[in-house]
Design a protein around this nucleic acid. Structure first.
Lengths: 224, 224
DNA sequence: ACAAAAGTGTTAATTTTACACCCATGC
DNA sequence: GCATGGGTGTAAAATTAACACTTTTGT
C-alpha cells in the first residue's frame, strides 16, 4: 500500500471489505454499509479506497485482514473470509497484488465501532469513485455476498449469538434487497439444520414472544 | 519457488492444479488426473509438488498460471480460473504466499500434451504425499470442482468446441464419480441454456447419430 | 433382425410458492 | 378488545427423479 518499487519486485497487500448492516438514510430499512479510507498520498491522493495494508512477514493472511479491521473500526471479533486475489499488472502504478477478504460485522460489535483516521462509512451500493480497481472489488464482493447468502449460512455472521428468525430474515432481506415470505423462510432455514433453538424466547415485544436460536453446532464451513 | 529469503519479505508464487480427464487404470472409466513436479531441491527435495513458479513483475496472475501450464504440459489453450490463495506463515520454511489457479484441459489439447522436466501425471484422488500444504490444496481443488460442476457450466472446459450430450454427461460422471440418468441430464442441461445445437450430428457411431452442441454464446462467467 | 445409444413421454415424489389462519403478547 | 408480529396449515405450481418406450444408425 505504501510501496514504491524500485526493482522488479511484486508487493503483496491484503485489503478487507468490511460489511455491516445499518439503516438506509432514505428508506430507513437495513442495508449494507462499508467503511472506506481517504488516501493521503499518491497515487489517487484524496480518493476513497478499501482499507488494507502490506502483508507482514510474520502474519497469516487472515491475521492481516483482522489487523485492518481493527485499525479501521476498532473491532476485533468478526467473521472473516477470503474473497479473491487481484493482480492485474496495470491495477496500480507500482506492482501490487491484493488479496481481498471480507469481514461481516455483527450489530453488537458494530455498535462499538470507532472510525479510524480518514475513515468514513458508505452505503455499499452507492460508493463514490474509488482508487485503483477498488470499484470492481466492491462490486464483486456484493455479487458474491448476495449469491452466497442464498446457499450458505453466512447470514449468522451479521447477528449476535442468539437471534430470532425475524432477525435472520431481516439480514437476508437487507442483503438481497427484497422481502421474503416469513412462513416459507422459517421452514427453509429450519430444514437446513444450520440453526438450533436455545429453548428460550425473547420477551418485551409488543406481540407474541419469538423463539431464540443460535448457530448450529457444526457449521461445516464450506468456502463458496 | 526458488526463493531463499534473507530479509523479511514475503514472496509470491502462482501454482496451478492442472486437471485433465483420462481413463482410470483399474476401472477403465474416465477420471480426473493432474500432473505433479518432483522437487529437485530443498525444502521437500524428492517430493512431488504442484507445478508453479514465482510471479514475475510483468505478468498478470492468470498469465503466470498459463506459463506454468505451458512449462508443465506444453499446452497453451485451456480454461483457467483462480481457486484460492494460501498464505499461512508456516506453510513453507521461507515465507511464500501461493495464489492457486486451476486449468481444465480439453481432450484435444490433452492429446498433444508433452510432459516437462520431472513431471508425472497422477489420478487426482490418489496422489502421493505432497510437499508443503499441497495435499490440502489438491483436496480443496477437488471439492470445489465437484461442487461447482453442479451449478455452473464449467464441464464445457473439458470438451472440444463441439460435443455430444453423452460426452458432456461423461464429464459430469467422471468428475462426480457417479452415473447420471441420460434422459434427465439432457433436459436439465438444455433447460439451462448453456449449450446450443450446432445443427449437425456426429456420424460414424454404431448407433443413432447424436446431435452436436457447442457452448452457448454468453456463458455469463460467474466465479463461484 | 439385432444391438446400442439417442431421444421422447409419463408419472410419482419432492420442493417451492402463495396465502389463509390461529396464537401469544402489550396496550 | 385490538394491533402486531410469531408460528402452523394447506393446496397449487414447479422442479426433480425414475423408468418405459420409440427412433436411428451400424453390423
Amino acid at each position: 500500500m505504501t510501496t514504491t518499487q524500485v526493482d522488479q519486485r511484486v508487493s503483496l497487500a491484503v485489503s478487507t471489505v468490511i460489511f455491516a448492516l445499518r439503516p438506509d438514510p432514505s428508506t430507513g430499512r437495513q442495508t449494507l454499509w462499508l467503511p472506506l479510507v481517504r488516501r493521503i498520498r499518491e497515487p489517487y491522493e484524496g480518493k476513497w479506497a478499501l482499507p488494507g495494508g502490506p502483508l507482514e512477514a510474520h502474519e497469516d493472511l487472515a491475521a492481516s485482514a483482522r489487523h485492518t479491521l481493527e485499525r479501521t473500526t476498532g473491532l476485533g471479533d468478526s467473521y472473516l473470509e477470503q474473497l479473491y486475489s487481484f493482480g492485474a499488472v496495470d491495477r496500480s502504478p507500482d506492482r501490487v497484488v491484493s488479496i481481498v477478504y471480507w469481514a461481516l460485522v455483527r450489530p453488537d460489535e458494530d455498535a462499538r465501532a470507532i472510525d479510524g483516521e480518514n475513515v468514513e462509512w458508505f452505503v455499499a451500493d452507492d460508493v463514490p469513485d474509488l482508487a485503483f480497481d477498488h470499484d470492481d472489488i466492491v462490486r464483486y464482493a456484493l455479487d458474491r455476498l448476495r449469491a452466497k447468502i442464498t446457499y450458505s449460512p453466512i447470514a449468522h455472521a451479521f447477528l449476535a449469538d442468539e437471534f430470532t428468525l425475524a432477525e435472520l430474515r431481516e439480514v437476508h432481506e437487507a442483503v438481497l434487497r427484497k422481502s421474503l415470505d416469513p412462513a416459507n423462510f422459517r421452514r427453509q432455514v429450519l430444514a437446513g439444520r444450520t440453526i438450533e433453538p436455545t429453548g428460550t424466547c425473547l420477551t418485551g415485544t409488543s406481540h407474541r414472544p419469538p423463539a431464540l436460536y443460535r448457530a448450529a453446532a457444526r457449521p461445516e464451513e464450506i468456502a463458496r
